[in-house]
């Protein structure tokens, strides 16, 4: 261990203090909002029938897991989201590589990608349902459709902005295009890949929940729609909360992967 001066100790103390303050306010904000919500609901300042309340949400959550098979709905949605995510990311990566590889292919497909990117994918919902039926298949298809275009565009931009001088260096060594791809373009774009994963996590959730809104017999999106139709706002809020937690967890997993992969 190096011996630091008192100034350094002071400096570290300051940083630690700042972190503590930030965390304290974060928690305070959450607790404050929840208490105001609870208080207003109890005092009937806001209608608890429409707005639910934190304690009611909590009891609903417990009940849901105990009696109503919440875990089943969670797993269904997780299955659809993760599968949609993996397919979108996998194919997005491969298609982006192909487009990097062949300039001609890229030029040919460019207008189609632009159109697909600007098209609101939800508009294709009815067609997808007709094609894929009303099960998980349609929902996964939706998740893939929403995710894949962004995945392709993000990856392709990364591939195309590979340092020209580094390509030149490899070419001067007599490298083939395959070698340039394997030694430079792919390893050099791991940070791009991670940011693509982060965007795709969000996209996959949008896709699966949208899909479930349109057509489903189970899943979190289904519970939310069902809850709003029968005016069980406790159910809607509790399910939304679970959704928040799951999406955050998935994002955190990607961040963890980033720490493992991106070091230099």
């Amino acid at each position: 261990m190096k011996n630091f001066s008192d100034n350094h100790t002071l400096f570290i103390k300051k940083i630690k203090r700042e972190t503590r303050i930030v965390w304290a306010f974060r928690i305070l904000l959450l607790v404050g909002l929840l208490s105001i919500w609870e208080l207003f609901a109890r005092l009937n300042i806001i209608d608890p029938f429409i707005s639910s309340s934190p304690t009611k949400m909590a009891t609903t959550l417990v009940e849901l897991f105990k009696e109503n098979n919440m875990l089943y709905h969670v797993l269904i949605t997780l299955y659809e989201t993760i599968l949609g995510f993996i397919i979108a990311v996998g194919f997005g990566f491969i298609i982006a590589l192909l487009l990097w590889w062949s300039t001609r292919l890229r030029k040919i497909l460019e207008p189609y990608i632009v159109v697909l990117n600007s098209l609101p994918k939800i508009a294709l919902g009815p067609i997808i349902i007709v094609w894929c039926g009303s099960g998980s298949k349609a929902i996964i298809f939706m998740a893939v459709l929403i995710g894949i275009i962004v995945a392709i565009i993000t990856m392709l931009n990364g591939f195309l902005s590979t340092d020209k001088d580094k390509i030149l260096l490899l070419e001067s060594m007599g490298a083939s295009q395959l070698q340039i791809m394997l030694k430079l373009v792919i390893p050099g774009n791991i940070p791009t890949f991670i940011s693509m994963l982060k965007i795709s996590v969000g996209m996959a959730w949008i896709g699966s929940i949208m899909g479930e809104y349109l057509v489903s017999k189970a899943g979190l999106g289904y519970l939310i729609v069902y809850g709003s139709q029968v005016f069980k706002l406790d159910l809607v809020m509790a399910t939304t909360l679970i959704l928040c937690i799951l999406a955050t967890l998935m994002y955190a997993l990607v961040s963890l992967l980033e720490k493992k992969l991106v070091k230099h």
Binding site: D165, L168, L169, S172, M173, L184, K263
Partner: peptide, 16 residues
């Protein structure tokens, strides 16, 4: 090929 070694302006070492 083997016969030429090229060195550029920046070192172009691969950071990973």
């Amino acid at each position: 090929s083997l016969s030429v070694g090229y060195m550029l302006q920046k070192d172009q070492l691969f950071p990973w």
